[in-house]
Each structure stands twice: as C-alpha cells, then as structure tokens.
Design a protein around this nucleic acid. Structure first.
Lengths: 151, 151
DNA sequence: TGCATGTAAGTTGTGCACGACTGAATCGTA
DNA sequence: TACGATTCAGTCGTGCACAACTTACATGCA
C-alpha cells in the first residue's frame, strides 16, 4: 500500500530527520545543562567565548550563525548570570566586545562531563561521529551557498 | 597551536553541526514556504496531516515529536488559515481530531516544487540523501533511548 | 454509585530564532 | 570637510519549543 501512495512522507524527509535529531540532542543537553544553569544556545555561545573571549557580537554571530537580534538578549542573560561582561570598543564605538568573567571561566570545566555523557548516548564511534559532523557541516555550507534567488 | 589547546571547539561538536544544519535547512524552506503562507513547523505538521488526515493532537505529537503545548497554538494558526478543522471526538471527548480542509488539500501540490528546490540545493545524491536521513533517524532513536537518568 | 487515578488537551511563562526596523558610529568619496 | 552609504548592536513582533500547571473527562475499582 505504501508504494502506491503519492504523498511526500514525513519520515522520508531529510529536513524532518534533521529537525527531529537536532531537537533530540538539544533535549539531551537541556536536562544536563539545567544543573549548570545554562540553556542549550547559551552553552553554545559560551563554547565559542571560551574558545575566544572578547569577540564582538558580530563575530559571535558569525561563529554561531545567529543574528544580533537573537544574540543580544541571549548575551544579556549571560551577563545577568555574571558569566560574561560587555565592553564597548574604544576604536569603534558601534561594536561591543563580550568577555568571559572569572565565574564564566569557572563554568568551563563543569561542561566536560555533560559533553561526555551526550556523546556516549549517541552510541557513535569516533569515526562515525566525525563523519556525520563533517557531512552536516558540508550540508549547511552547500545549502547556504544556494540562496533561494539562485534556484 | 590548535593541537595544544584544551578547549572544546564549537566546530568539533556534533551537536552544533546538527543545530546549525537544521537551522540552515529550515531557513531554506522558510523563504520558499513564505509564498505559500506556511512556516516550517506548520509545513511539517501539514505533511503529517496530508499523510493521515484526522489524527488526534497526541498522534500528531507522536509523529512530529512535539508536545501538545507546542502543537495547540500551531494547529490553531493552521485552523485560522482555513487549512485544517478541529473536531472533538465523539467517543472520547478529551481528544481533538485534526482534519485537512479542501483548502488544505489544495495546498499539497504546491509544496512539491519547494521540496524539490531544497533537495536540489543540498547537492546530495539520492543515496547520500537516504544515508544521511537514516543516520539521523538512528541517532535520534539512540539518544532518546538513553534518558539522562540512565547515564 | 461514588471516588481515586490517570490521561488528553489547553494555558502560561521563559527563552530562542528570525525579519524588519532604529539609531548611532564610521567610512568613502568628492 | 561635508554627506550619503554602510555597518553594528539593539528593539519589536511573530512563531515555535518546552516545562509546569490546570481543566476536563474517562476508566477502574470498591
């Protein structure tokens, strides 16, 4: 019967597989990050800031692929948690640099077990993990290089 | 230098690759679906309803892996667009069945080119597409079978 | 029949995510 | 040195996404 139907099936869609898997992973992180007091997007922003403290909002937006309209409130919440500090640039007063505070640095080591637990829960080998990650990075780059106007 | 750093790098995270790729794909759909008047989650809900009209909210939540608190307002918007109709069950008045209306059915054929365009923009062969899709379905199932309590 | 239990759906509150816009600062170029 | 275009952070409005809670109802069992 399934072979005779002309509907596009939800479970056949790559987009849905991606959407559902992404929410499943963020859900796994959510529970564990709750102990630390971070949401999942906040955790990703902190990951980027631990890697490079002092990024401007635009730089962080580049790294996370997010708009300033999303990041501004998120950074404000991180600031109110005392994890980061905003500093307006001296050279260019349009820019705001986001610095990790002492409290922010202290949090870094506490996230390692969270990462470990979620990675274990995926059941993937290191190779599978890396292969899937690169496939997804490549997919994103390809789709973003295909703006709707060119289709 | 990169080899000496002890930070967890954002771009090394599968979770981030997944998160970013998912947003990239939904962004690609967003632009094309705007012509049709649907958001991306609304489109996914309609996909499921076109496949099986008359599902209860809980069934739809099972298919999409979403809570009723997410679906209720989403369905309300679809109803106000005239694409679906709610009907409280006769046998069990707790349940609400969601039926596709004539206008809803008319929309179905208009989504095929959207799907086609996004699939093309991924640059994936049919085999790669299916392989990635199954890997993601499997990943989701594995992670959801690993509740945090068991870690 | 009466009541405890559990389940379906909806409500509320918080936090993304994005488009459209605003206002300030800077840059390019004449 | 004017001044229009651009860039940057931020605001606002809409729509998810989820947790916690409420309401309504059906069912099981005494």
């Amino acid at each position: 019967m399934a072979s005779t139907q002309d509907h596009a099936r939800l479970d056949d869609q790559l987009c849905f597989a991606l959407y559902a898997a992404s929410r499943a992973i963020s859900g796994a992180y959510r529970q564990l990050l709750a102990d630390i007091g971070l949401t999942y997007p906040q955790y990703l922003a902190m990951l980027s800031l631990w890697e490079k403290s002092g990024q401007s909002v635009a730089e962080l937006g580049d790294a996370l692929d997010l708009e300033s309209s999303t990041l501004s409130p998120l950074i404000r919440r991180l600031e109110s948690l005392g994890l980061v500090r905003r500093q307006r640039s001296d050279e260019d007063e349009r820019m705001v640099h986001v610095h990790v505070t002492d409290a922010g640095w202290k949090l870094e080591s506490r996230t390692a077990p969270v990462r470990q637990q979620v990675e274990t829960s995926t059941g993937l080998s290191d190779t599978e993990f890396a292969t899937l990650r690169e496939a997804l990075h490549h997919l994103r780059a390809t789709v973003q290089g295909h703006p709707a106007s060119s289709l």
